[in-house]
Design a protein around this nucleic acid. Sequence first.
DNA 1: TTGATAATTCATATTTTTATGATATTAGAA
DNA 2: TTCTAATATCATAAAAATATGAATTATCAA
Lengths: 101, 101
Amino acid sequence: MPLSAMREKTEAVADFLKGLANPQRLLMLCALAQGEKTVGELIAQTGIAPTSMSQHLAKLKAEGIVGVRREHRNLHYAISHAAVLEVMAVLAAHFCQASDG
Amino acid sequence: MPLSAMREKTEAVADFLKGLANPQRLLMLCALAQGEKTVGELIAQTGIAPTSMSQHLAKLKAEGIVGVRREHRNLHYAISHAAVLEVMAVLAAHFCQASDG
DNA sequence: TTGATAATTCATATTTTTATGATATTAGAA
DNA sequence: TTCTAATATCATAAAAATATGAATTATCAA
């Protein structure tokens, strides 16, 4: 499966990457990498405004990057796309090495 | 080095991902994954209009994703960021499996 | 029911990205 | 020199992403 195989999937792959390519959504995904969280927990942990959080979550959900389930009044979000943690691991290795300042 | 380390680098990581998050640039990077190419070769191989190609290359260069060298009248571009091929490999594995239609 | 909390949707202004035609630069050939 | 090819930059219009205040929906408690 060569990298060139991606040529036929550039739209889908670009949409997926657009889902990740935002500082606030990366922050959210770092939080979600620890496990499922409610919207309130995500807001508390990231400092992102509620409306903005909803929009970002909607975008991640539309892209299949996260999934939701409701429990009482709270909506619990979790990473649902297998590629997310793998991509983030590669990025962490390259952008956040121990040797970095 | 946990994924949470990325929290302090979200701007840089998001900028890097924005560099990749476009169908045309992914197409260009698929071509460049085979090795260094001139602008003309990239245009021929991808069908992207020259002006658009220049702008995309400028963006990739600004982000450190590709590098250039001049040889006579031709500019040769090549992937210069170690994370690119690793990220693309992850994406290819998830979006372009043999089992895919 | 009424009220309160959790979260989303709507409306809209701002910013960023993308596309494209016109012009400019650079290097080599004639 | 002058011409041409290769490529970039400029200008600008159109589309997409982002931020934010106001209104709405959903669930539960009193």
